[in-house]
């Protein structure tokens, strides 16, 4: 039992991201309101960003901004946290913001036409066509 506790505590970052991700997916599947679905999608994307950022963490590391003194070029990587996941997540954040913008535009266009954002009501309106 204590092994399990150690395993969970040593990797609780992964547990947290998985829980967040499941909340997001559940909202995307179960909610009927389009905006709620969008929020679920955002939670889902954010959980992946957290996952990546937690990969980059190092115990005892500081932010990856180095001393810029001439002649001092020996850098010990273990002292700085990993910059690569941060770079990747900058890109992923931008992608998720862009997707969210386009999704809101689509939702607004749907609202303009159907005067509602509830998915079942929209489908009711579309059915007779």
């Amino acid at each position: 039992m204590s092994d399990l506790v150690v395993a969970v505590l040593g990797k609780y970052n992964y547990w947290l991201y998985i829980i967040l991700m499941m909340i997001g997916i559940y909202a995307m599947i179960a909610k009927k309101n389009l905006i709620k679905k969008l929020v679920g999608m955002n939670i889902f994307q954010t959980s992946i960003i957290l996952f990546y950022v937690s990969i980059g963490c190092k115990k005892g590391g500081t932010i990856p901004i180095l001393e810029h003194s001439p002649g001092h070029h020996m850098v010990e990587p273990a002292h700085y946290i990993n910059p690569l996941p941060h770079v990747l997540m900058l890109t992923a954040i931008v992608v998720s913001v862009s997707t969210f913008g386009v999704a809101l535009a689509l939702a607004l266009k749907i609202y303009r036409k159907h005067k509602t954002l509830e998915e079942d009501e929209i489908l009711m309106q579309l059915r007779p066509e």
Binding site: M41, L106, I110, K113, I122
Partner: peptide, 14 residues
């Protein structure tokens, strides 16, 4: 089209 595009967006993002 907007409704289908939004559905595509949800699944595509997933």
């Amino acid at each position: 089209a907007p409704m289908s595009a939004l559905n595509y967006l949800f699944l595509g993002t997933l």
